[in-house]
C-alpha cells in the first residue's frame, strides 16, 4: 500500500533554468521597450514654379488654394470657394474663426492645451463642408504667425488633416482618424514673414 502511494507522487518541474532565461530577457526588453508611441506628420515646402493657367470666368475651374492662417486671434480661412466669401473684397474675403479666449491664451499649469483655446470644431465643420463640395482636393496651405508656438502649428495640422468625429469611408479615409479632410499640408512663410524666405 505504501509503495503504491510513493509511485503516484508527481515529480516537480525544475523551473530554475527558465527563470534564469526570463530574468536575463526582462532587462533587455525593458531597455528596448517603447511605452510612448511616436509618429510623423509629413509636410513640404511650397513648390516654386510658374502659375497654372486657369479659366478666369469659370469659378469651378479655379484651384481651391485653401489657406488657413493661424494667429493669436484665431483662424482665418481663405481660398476660391463660395463658403469662403471668395467674391468679396478686402477684409470681407475669407472666414474668420476667433478663439474661445482673448489672445488664444491657455494655462499650461491648469492642464490646458491649445485645443482648449482655438475653436477646432468650427474649423473642422467649415473644412468638412468644403471637402463635401470638392472631395478631390487634398492640399491645404498653413500660414502661421511667426511668434506662434510649434504645438499650435501641430494642432492646426491635425485639425486640417482629419475630423475624428466625421463619418469615414474605408477607401477615402485610410490612414486618418475618422474622416480625412486635407491630408497634404504645406507650410508657408507666415503672416508678416521676412522677405527672402520660402
Amino acid at each position: 500500500m505504501r509503495a503504491k502511494k510513493r509511485g503516484t507522487t508527481a515529480e516537480e518541474l525544475n523551473l530554475v533554468p527558465i527563470m534564469n532565461l526570463v530574468t536575463i530577457l526582462i532587462p533587455f526588453l525593458l531597455m528596448a521597450a517603447q511605452f510612448v508611441s511616436y509618429a510623423v506628420i509629413d509636410s513640404t515646402l511650397p513648390a516654386i514654379g510658374p502659375p497654372v493657367e486657369t479659366e478666369e470666368d469659370d469659378p469651378d475651374e479655379k484651384p481651391l488654394s485653401l489657406q488657413v492662417m493661424i494667429s493669436f486671434e484665431g483662424f482665418a480661412v481663405g481660398g476660391n470657394h463660395k463658403l469662403l466669401n471668395s467674391d468679396a473684397e478686402g477684409d470681407e474675403r475669407g472666414v474668420k474663426i476667433p478663439c474661445h479666449s482673448p489672445g488664444c491664451t491657455y494655462s499650461v499649469e491648469g492642464g490646458e492645451g491649445p485645443e482648449d483655446a482655438y475653436d477646432l470644431k468650427e474649423l473642422r465643420t467649415l473644412l468638412g463642408n468644403i471637402k463635401d463640395d470638392k472631395p478631390e482636393e487634398q492640399n491645404v496651405i498653413l500660414v502661421p504667425d511667426p511668434s506662434l508656438p510649434y504645438e499650435v502649428l501641430v494642432m492646426a495640422m491635425d485639425a486640417t488633416r482629419e475630423d475624428p468625429e466625421g463619418t469615414s469611408t474605408e477607401d477615402a479615409d485610410a490612414g486618418c482618424n475618422g474622416r480625412c479632410l486635407f491630408p497634404y499640408v504645406v507650410i508657408s512663410g507666415g503672416v508678416g514673414a521676412a522677405s527672402g524666405g520660402e
Binding site: 511616436y38 509618429a39 506628420i41 513640404t44 515646402l45 511667426p146 507650410i187 507666415g190
Partner: peptide, 25 residues
C-alpha cells in the same frame, strides 16, 4: 516659435531636404 522652425525649414530646404517629417507623440 514658428519663426525659428521656419528658419530651420528654410535652411534644410536650401540643403535639398524639402520633405519634412515632424515627429510627434
Amino acid at each position: 516659435p514658428f519663426s525659428l522652425i521656419r528658419e530651420v525649414m528654410y535652411t534644410a530646404g536650401q540643403a535639398q531636404f524639402g520633405e519634412f517629417k515632424f515627429v510627434v507623440v
